[in-house]
Design a protein around this nucleic acid. Structure first.
Lengths: 242, 242
DNA sequence: AATATACACGAACATCTGTGCGATGTCAAG
DNA sequence: CTTGACATCGCACAGATGTTCGTGTATATT
């Protein structure tokens, strides 16, 4: 898939148009905006984009096209075609420019993450990553904020066993499934010696693992590396109080 | 604003159509779906809906209509016209029904909350609620999860002064502006005696205020009621680690 | 030189689509 | 009963809209 400037422009224009008017542009509008005098050329390029899977088209239908955000994201094109303003955020992100009307509501692409269970002291995390279907609770996250979304899952925190990670009863922890951790990353780890799952910053120091709590008032813990098995990396914590 | 069954049906159909195909239906499609034989009747009813502000129309434009979700929400119509499945969540919420395809991405109505500043020990919260325009950072939240959205604002936590509330450096705290608190609510309060803003659970006990930290390992604090001024209620805490 | 391929142009065409208008039916107020 | 507002219907029309087709222009391949 190798997009010409024209095709990029078309994608950008469609995104902008839809954001602004909540319905797609016509072929002629696209042509006018992208300096294409002929409707057939627009169609030609739209066919390309559809073949590449980046857009969806309903043939013979006026304005019958839409962007496939998932594919665009997969192709790494999101930053290219998404407007810097009106960009969206689940947690936090800096909005660059001015905002005309703060009441303006928009629509944002979302994806879902399964809540695979809960996390509590004294229990291993019961994560069967293939067991996505059994989840009966889902968290919707903003697409723009998360990468490697296939590997994400969520756990609900039970009890006060994670206070030293500043994670409270009822909080939702978003994790990315991974078995190895870089130093400094906050991970969910099962500690064999303790019989506990814990959320800590991970540091491999020789054959020892140092686990540092997020709350600086708690002391570091040390375990033989063999006793610590990383279950995933903590990507986000969400606390909803009402 | 008093909607006929027909108009409700039209709204429902448009919502369903847009959700499914990401572009709006034509007048004739609406007619066919809602058992209206004449296009002009559809137009007649669309005019009604537009006058009520529930939809937006671009005259003379094919499929030139869109739903005004904010208005629909304000009119209490969201539950009526929104599909029960595919409803969205920022933080956490139980999804009732089955999910066809977990990779399905949808669009969700969002609203923005200004990040009015930061919260740190030793400083009052510099919240001028009318000062929304000066915010250069915004948090987008899921409409469905928050009520009284006009009064919401966000603060970024600076430093480790809120660890006893299980809130870390860099976290985003979503607050609802209010000056009075019910017992047990978690509030942001300025404590005159300490010269600090703090996040604590609030309890008015006689002429004293007891402030309880979210982390049970911290002791309660007591102040004369006159010294404690509530700035807002904590509605959500969001921590983004990558 | 001949051919193939990718990209672009413009005109013609058949639908699609929103709008306007006159006619009809309903129903409550006068 | 009459009137008028409201809701509906059918239809014709002008403009919009996607598609098709013949053509032209590079660039690479054979």
């Amino acid at each position: 898939m190798n997009l010409s400037d024209r095709q990029m422009n078309i994608l950008r224009y469609i995104a902008e148009f839809v954001e602004e008017r909540s319905y797609p542009p016509t072929i002629r509008q696209i042509g006018a905006a992208c300096d294409i005098s002929s409707t057939s050329v627009v169609k030609y390029n739209l066919n390309k984009l559809e073949t590449d899977g980046l857009i969806l088209r309903d043939p013979e239908v006026s304005r019958g096209l839409s962007l496939d955000w998932a594919k665009l994201d997969a192709a790494g094109l999101l930053p290219e075609i998404q407007k810097p303003v009106g960009y969206a955020v689940n947690g936090a992100a800096t909005r660059v420019a001015e905002r005309v009307n703060r009441a303006t509501e928009r629509v944002v692409s979302f994806f879902s993450v399964p809540v695979l269970g809960h996390i509590a002291a004294g229990e291993p995390i019961q994560v069967d990553v293939s067991d996505y279907d059994s989840a009966d609770e889902w968290i919707d996250l903003n697409q723009a904020l998360y990468r490697d979304r296939d590997k994400l899952f969520a756990l609900r925190v039970q009890g006060d066993s994670m206070v030293d990670a500043s994670v409270l009863d009822g909080d939702i922890v978003i994790l990315r499934h991974q078995e190895k951790a870089e130093n400094g990353e906050m991970v969910a780890a099962w500690i064999d010696g303790l019989g506990e799952t814990t959320l800590k910053h991970f540091y491999l120091e020789g054959k020892q693992v140092r686990l540092r709590a997020a709350n600086p008032n708690y002391k570091d813990m040390f375990f033989p590396a063999a006793q610590v098995s990383v279950k995933g990396r903590v990507v986000s914590v969400i606390r909803q109080l009402e």
